[in-house]
Design a protein around this nucleic acid. Structure first.
Lengths: 223, 223
DNA sequence: ACCTGAACACCGTTCAAGT
DNA sequence: ACCTGAACACCGTTCAAGT
């Protein structure tokens, strides 16, 4: 009698990977405040103290989860146009933080290994553009700050307080489509996509302004 | 530091202003985690529930404290060169967040009235420069995002730089991985990137890059 | 070695009871 | 009306006790 064919109960032992994966799941579904030791251990069907055998504490958990999500995103600078590479790096960060808003607060609050890789990729592309020395440090810092900060703020919904027109539109859409949306996801999703789309364009416009500034200063220096 | 001892006498009745002022004091001295209802009410020599007669809750407290600190910072709109006005607004935000690091997280996490005023000031100066329409929205959003995000990240980084272990590790990685390192003493140059004084210069350099980009695009559009 | 879960020291908020 | 402080429902972390 075999019984218990596919019970996901205690088949695997706990591991750091499983704990981190469950944390990401919880963060995505329940938000930053939804990640509690109680909720996490309940999700893992284990005791409250079990995770402390695989993780130092909650800080370690947040850092590991962030690193797992941002992971290989900033893999390597392509050998194409450095401008395009920079834009795709920026958009990659934006989309990741948009999908996992808690990553935004995490990356901007405390420096992490993931931020290093971002620095290196951005620095390499700027270097390819011909930026060097102090200018490279200045431009790299500014671009990293913008990409991280703007993505985090867009994800946090800063746009609603910043742009009165978009705020009005957003609230109107929210008022008309959010409460009465009985149909399965259609209008609500459309509204989300619209606002996301605008945010993304505006974010990228900021990247382009920045790159234009870098190139303008580069040209001045060459004269 | 005079050494004068201030006795916590209960001369005045509690008020929203006194509660907010005490919160700011606590946030500045004990950090973001140091603001607890227990510590606050102890500081005010009152019962735990007393503050709830003057404040909705902790969120309201944080918002009010942030607004009080950022307060009239943006109010001083100079009628001089808009570029200089923009730079002074940016530096004002940077210095404020540097002095009150908790303001950084607060402004970037949740939209606030203070952010709206910042957007208006920056928008007005950009408008004076001749930026209009979609370009104004794009440039304004980008600058607000950069000023807020970069200031918050520099403040967070400065706090972490106090930890000697993390700082050393950070410097080492920076020195070995930063592209084009190899000039006079890589580590030394990397170390300079983390000092507070250079932070301000680097932050302002970022503002100038953005402004150069805005002006460059403006020139292109005029052709 | 790994896991359990009660216990501990916190936290924000509420509310009957006082003034 | 304003304040008090015990009580409530949480939280992260620890640790003797089990397997």
């Amino acid at each position: 009698m075999t019984g218990r064919v596919r019970a996901p109960r205690r088949v695997d032992a706990l591991s750091r990977e499983r704990v981190v994966a469950a944390s990401i799941e919880l963060l995505d579904t329940a938000g930053e405040d939804g990640l509690t030791v109680r909720a996490l251990t309940a999700h893992l069907s284990t005791g409250r103290g079990a995770i402390y055998h695989h993780v130092v504490g909650k800080d370690d958990l947040l850092t590991a989860a962030t690193d797992a999500v941002i992971g290989d995103l900033v893999a390597t600078a392509g050998d194409g146009d450095p401008r395009e590479t920079l834009r795709s790096i920026a958009v990659g960060i934006f989309d990741t933080i948009d999908a996992h808003p808690w990553v935004g607060g995490q990356l901007t609050r405390h420096p992490q290994p993931a931020v290093f890789r971002l620095w290196n990729s951005i620095g390499a592309s700027l270097s390819e553009l011909g930026v060097a020395g102090t200018d490279l440090a200045d431009a790299g810092s500014a671009l990293v700050s913008y990409v991280l900060g703007a993505s985090a703020q867009y994800a946090a919904g800063a746009r609603q307080a910043v742009d009165p027109v978009a705020r009005e539109k957003y609230l109107q859409q929210l008022a008309t489509q959010w409460p009465g949306s009985g149909c399965d996801g259609g209008p609500g999703q459309a509204a989300e996509l619209l606002t996301d789309h605008d945010d993304r364009d505006q974010f990228l416009a900021g990247v382009d302004i920045f790159l234009a500034g870098v190139l303008a200063r580069l040209r001045v220096k060459m004269d």
